[in-house]
Amino acid sequence: MDVSTLESELKKRLDFPYNWGRKQSDDWDRKTKFIYQTHDFETLENQCKDFDDGLRNYAFNRWLNFWSAKVVESIFVFNPLVEKEENQFSKTVDFYISGIPFDHKSSVFPRQFGKSFDYSVNHKKELIEWLYQNQSQEGRKHNTNRLFIIFYNEQNGEHWKLKAELALIKEKITDYLDNFSEDNLVSLNLESCEILSDVIWVKI
């Protein structure tokens, strides 16, 4: 499925509320693992027809997040500056930029951070430290290099909807890579781990 078709499918999910009902967990991840093979929203709805509201919302959200993130990864690896990680099962590396390994994570602007958008942009290191400290505590937790793609919708606060704006995401990532420099990365020391990180803002 090409990016424009996938963008159209992802946007069909935007008509439904974005409610998790609970934090992401390994248990519910197993129950909704079919999202990895589901490309269109109609099929997704059919697969969730016997779920209660909580699990259906969870599946809808995971599906949107997964396919948006897959496109993010493909945008990176098609750039000549980037090399894909050969181990597709790696939980800590998605790709290498100028030889530097990175995992990437797409997230909505975290209101729990308690700071404004402008403050977050101007205090990037503080935001990144908060993101690491408040990451999921199960299979996703790790302290290694990470690029955060953060969505911010100034118009209506529905940041999550920008995950379906694949053309806009491509524009922001391409601009980031065109101006990439290791000197601009944020350096952290977390739990005795030396980490390089950065934020790419996807904002309207």
Rank of each mutant, 00 (worst) to 15 (best):
E83V: 14
Q133D: 15
F66A: 03
L81H: 07
F60G: 02
F151C: 05
W20V: 00
K11F: 01
N122I: 00
F102D: 04
C48G: 08
E83H: 09
L127G: 06
E171Q: 13
F89I: 13
L131T: 01
H104L: 14
T38V: 06
F78A: 11
F113N: 08
L185W: 10
L64P: 13
I169C: 01
K91T: 07
T174W: 06
R13C: 14
L168Y: 08
N184I: 03
N19Q: 14
Q37V: 00
R56M: 11
N153D: 15
Y18N: 11
E158D: 12
K172W: 05
W201V: 02
C193D: 14
K23S: 14
I195E: 07
Q112W: 11
F41P: 04
E182H: 09
K12N: 12
A167M: 06
Y36F: 13
C193A: 11
V93Y: 06
F60N: 06
N79S: 10
L166C: 07
K11L: 05
K84W: 04
E165L: 04
K49F: 13
S120I: 03
L177H: 08
F113L: 09
K161Q: 14
A59H: 06
K172I: 09
F180Y: 14
L188K: 13
H123N: 15
F95Q: 01
Y18I: 08
K161G: 02
L162F: 09
I97P: 15
R146C: 13
N79I: 07
T38L: 03
I97F: 08
K172S: 11
P80G: 00
E126H: 09
E126V: 11
S192M: 13
L168P: 04
N87A: 11
L6D: 02
G54A: 12
H159F: 06
S116R: 03
I200K: 02
W67V: 05
E154I: 12
K70I: 14
Y96L: 11
N189A: 05
C193I: 02
I195T: 02
G157Q: 09
L131F: 05
W28Y: 12
I100A: 03
I97W: 10
I128S: 13
E138F: 09
D52C: 11
I204L: 05
N189H: 08
W67T: 07
N189L: 04
D26C: 07
D27W: 01
K12R: 12
V199M: 03
K105D: 10
F16H: 10
F109R: 04
K115L: 05
L10P: 15
F34P: 14
D50I: 09
V72D: 07
D175G: 01
T43K: 07
N143H: 13
R140F: 00
